[in-house]
């Protein structure tokens, strides 16, 4: 499995990378951790003429606090998200999600920005990014803009990023008071990709009443989505077993589940309902 020939660039900083991308636009692909792009190139599903390797752009690898938010550079590797003490304390959902990606070797190379920009419908991060209400910063030679997570995922393998734009930063809120989170997943056995992954951010008052909730689901549809019907069925209600079960039953409302050799649409919908319930329960326990 040999990719087609390409010209390779390794810019030393972001402005060099932006200039190259501006020059080659659609003919170029950005290489981050490479664990989505290189397999596609080996299968010749992707045949870029130019590859711009961001591996030398050290300024895009960081995790830092900014008031009530945490900023993660796009080139931050999954292993660094997984093991970040700051994230474990202040945004455990993101660290837990990173922990469930692929395997050790994949997490050593793969990056949060690469994964998000690739927008694989079975990737783990999108569920957490949606549930957290993250914002994503994209930069081009013309300037920068923030994209809300919900606007970022457009379709299968398609994001709101425009030619010439580079995703540079992910901004997530720090964990609020009386808030629990969970990411649960059913992995496809061979690849580790999510047949179904559910991320929940849940705020409850001292009486166990749901004050706010966000549910992100990946693996089920062509793109990860917010399960609004589930959220509405939880908000303002005391979270007993029947409320959670009724809400989880709406996990695929308005969604047309994918069907492939790993799972039928019916089975995927079933997984979404069952694991949505487990994720809500787990988030409630972690408050």
């Amino acid at each position: 499995m040999i990719p087609t020939a390409f010209e390779y660039f390794r810019p030393a900083n972001l402005s060099e990378a932006l200039a190259l991308l501006e020059q080659y636009k659609d003919e170029a692909k950005l290489l981050a951790g490479g664990h989505s792009l290189i397999p596609l190139m080996k299968l010749r599903l992707a045949q870029p003429q130019y590859v711009i390797d961001l591996g030398g752009v050290k300024e895009l690898s960081y995790i830092r606090e900014s008031g009530e938010h945490l900023l993660i550079g796009a080139m931050t590797r999954h292993v660094d998200v997984e093991t970040s003490e700051m994230l474990r304390q202040r945004c455990p959902l993101l660290a837990e999600t990173a922990h469930r990606i692929g395997d050790v070797q994949v997490r050593n190379m793969g990056t949060i920005g690469g994964s998000l920009a690739h927008a694989d419908p079975a990737a783990d991060y999108p569920a957490a990014i949606l549930a957290l209400g993250a914002e994503l910063r994209a930069v081009s030679t013309k300037g920068e803009r923030w994209i809300r997570a919900e606007d970022f995922f457009v379709d299968m393998l398609t994001t709101a990023l425009q030619p010439g734009e580079i995703l540079v930063e992910v901004k997530v809120p720090a964990l609020g008071p009386r808030t629990g989170t969970a990411y649960v997943k059913v992995a496809q056995k061979a690849s580790g990709f999510a047949l179904c992954g559910v991320a929940v951010v849940l705020a409850v008052d001292p009486n166990g009443v749901c004050q706010d909730v966000a549910v992100g689901i990946t693996g089920i549809a062509p793109k990860a989505y917010r399960a609004r019907a589930v959220e509405e069925a939880l908000r303002g209600r005391a979270l007993d077993a029947s409320v959670i079960a009724n809400a989880s039953a709406k996990a695929t409302e308005g969604i047309d589940p994918l069907e492939d050799l790993h799972a039928s649409a019916e089975y995927r919908a079933h997984l979404a309902r069952v694991w949505c319930r487990r994720a809500i329960e787990q988030a409630r326990e972690s408050v």
Binding site: Y8, R10, L31, G34, I38, Q105, V106, N108, M109
Partner: peptide, 17 residues
């Protein structure tokens, strides 16, 4: 690769410069 286990089928040699 710089101390981290990686799958060498999913890296280009040029990345190892």
């Amino acid at each position: 690769f710089n101390g981290a286990a990686v799958k060498s089928c999913t890296l280009f040699a040029v990345q190892a410069d």
